[in-house]
Design a protein around this nucleic acid. Structure first.
Lengths: 208, 208
DNA sequence: TGGTCTCTCCACCTTTTGGCTGATACCGGT
DNA sequence: ACCGGTATCAGCCAAAAGGTGGAGAGACCA
């Protein structure tokens, strides 16, 4: 049986050493490199050519996880990358899968789940934590997520906390039109209330 | 030199083993017990009487970290507890310090910082990560803005986009109470609508 | 003990939102 | 010339949110 080489990417020292210890208990898995940022990750992968990369999405400074995945896959489209992160925000999942992640684990995943994901990744299998999978499924069900320019404009103002009336004044349109746009935005974002829309919008990065 | 005994409390297996490995490199620090929930923490502390408890605030199920700290301090007011968590939301910091935490570290703290916090704790010194300290300072500077623990809890859920009814169900209180809390939160944040409150809360960092 | 804070709840009322169903108009591509 | 997407507007109705004022219980502190 071949040993599966793994590179860990996480800006938390404790998480890296924890994962290393955990993976070290498996005879067929070996951690061959570590990195604490996107840039380091690229170097480490180039140097060690690991079978699998375990990557945290949230990196303190510099290149983020998503960008790192994209670049890794660009250099070697066969590179298996598993996302291993604390957060399970909708946007991150879609972006990670989009960037080419083979799996998506939450940090509270059971050890067995992690081992399974690593072993699955080398065979081209995709393993994800249950809550992640269900989110992704939901996202895929409504692919019409692209907002029109006008809708995006509205959403942006929405995150300032304006009322429909204020929104109308600011954009020189009637309140009725505002409501129409909002209804469309809600549908596209998959939410029911303006509160949820704001939360989604702000967290969806970019408009912080 | 005496060895400092430590109990780790975290529901993430990898974090526990990572910390254990990290602390293991220090001759004067020894991990004598682990727990993955508040309840277990109480047991472990009773059994091992550690000099220091390193505790994650966010525990999947059961008693949360804050409650665990309170109970630990109640049983033994001299018990040193260091909070070691990913999040640095304003409310958590205040509540943790209130409950009797000696230090407050973020999980991306440098190893040296962690060692220093453990060693400091046994001497009654309080060590906190820089971002945490600055938050706490800010909180103390404008006291008008401090939300009560309950209010902070509500605000946090508010940013998930929940309705008043859902908020009530989640917190086991009536919708009327939810509205009362919200009114207070709006006043303290200086906003008029829930939309603005959410925007403020999320941008105010921490609860991303 | 009295005062303050926090958390809980209630009623009544107004304003705001959201859901639904429509409509008109412009633009661009087939 | 027709169709799809976008942007604009309307009215109606139910639900949700917000404003006002009040009130009791428990904790904590002076």
């Amino acid at each position: 049986m071949n040993t599966i080489s793994v590179v860990l990417v996480d800006d938390h020292t404790v998480v890296r050493s924890g994962l290393k210890a955990l993976l070290g208990t498996q005879a067929d898995i070996a951690v061959v490199g570590e990195a604490s940022s996107g840039e380091e990750a690229l170097k480490a992968v180039q140097e060690h050519s690991p079978a699998v990369v375990l990557m945290d999405l949230a990196m303190g400074a510099g290149m983020d996880g998503i960008e790192a995945i994209k670049q890794l896959r660009q250099r070697n489209p066969k590179q298996a990358v598993i996302v291993f992160t604390t957060y399970d925000s909708d946007a991150d999942i879609v972006r990670a899968v989009d960037a080419g992640a083979m799996g998506y684990l939450l940090k509270d995943a059971a050890p067995e789940e992690i081992f399974a994901a690593v072993r699955g990744a080398v065979q081209g299998k995709s393993v994800m934590s249950a809550p992640v999978a269900s989110r992704l499924f939901q996202q895929l069900r409504n692919p019409d997520e692209i907002l029109t320019p006008r809708e995006a404009e509205l959403l942006s103002l929405l995150t300032e906390g304006l009322s429909n009336r204020d929104l109308g004044k600011r954009l020189f349109i009637s309140e009725a039109t505002v409501k129409t746009h909002l209804a469309h935005i809600y549908a596209k974002l998959g939410v029911e209330t303006r509160a949820a829309a704001i939360a989604t919008a702000i967290r969806r990065e970019g408009m912080r």
